[in-house]
Design a protein around this nucleic acid. Structure first.
Lengths: 136, 136
DNA sequence: TTATCTGCAAACATTTTGCAGCGAG
DNA sequence: CTCGCTGCAAAATGTTTGCAGATAA
């Protein structure tokens, strides 16, 4: 059985985790890299990509893909309040929304099918008022 | 006000629309391009991208972005059934699920915030029964 | 006629990978 | 000591764009 080796604790990895812990929102790998650079960290971009990728794989961070194809990451707050966004696919504006009972519903539904350790992604996109006007 | 000129009816566009009409599933621009090439069409890849892009903008086709960042298109069957999946993140198994009232709820919520042309992605992942047992 | 569409290739943006050296365990 | 991690730059991927010529209206 090929088991994955567990990541080593390195300065870079610690800094990345720290950055993730500080800001709880979704940011692209490049944005996280920028954040680190501004904190006088010297992590390389590729390292950030590799770290986020591995963290996402092990479930320590959440990853979503935007309409433009960028992958965004944020720290995963297992079981924490978990809110979703309503995002304008044109101008990128986003507002937090509440999805009542969704968590409970999803967990129950999954259980019905024999699934456990449920996680979910709910992405709602549309055109905000202004962009709707601008579009014709 | 800059109004967009309406697309001309060209051979290429017709072929693309025809291909979209034939297969109702989501495919990437490159895949649609392949399909056309196999039907001895000579449309260029860029043309396919441009056509799909314009069709998506005018709401004639649906576009979604995959986890790997590819954009997939399919003909838009306005008001068609739209189902979601419950997927096992370990073995990849997936089952279709029904999310009652979600569509309506999402549309209404979005409207509350002034959003229109709503689309959404609901991804529910977990461990299926077998994988849960196998996991240690 | 004229503005849009097309095809090609070059440009782009994001992410991945090869490789040599560093460093955690 | 070993093997994974890092940084750099080069490669890969998917998509967009510039341009000159073809073509719908």
């Amino acid at each position: 059985m090929t088991s994955k080796p567990k990541p080593r604790q390195t300065r870079q990895r610690a800094e990345i985790l720290s950055a993730l812990a500080t800001a709880g929102d979704f940011r692209s790998a490049q944005q996280w890299h920028d954040v680190l650079r501004h904190e006088s960290s010297t992590v390389g971009l590729a390292t950030v990509y590799r770290a986020l990728q591995s963290l996402a794989e092990s479930g320590e961070v959440d990853a979503v893909v935007t309409d433009s194809g960028e992958t965004l990451y944020r720290r995963c707050e297992a079981g924490d309040e978990h809110h979703h966004h309503l995002r304008c696919r044109r101008c990128g504006a986003a507002e937090e929304i509440d999805v009542p009972d969704f968590e409970a519903w999803a967990t129950q539904l999954a259980a019905t099918h024999g699934y456990s350790s449920i996680d979910h992604t709910v992405e709602i996109t549309g055109l905000c008022g202004e962009c709707a006007k601008a579009t014709n």
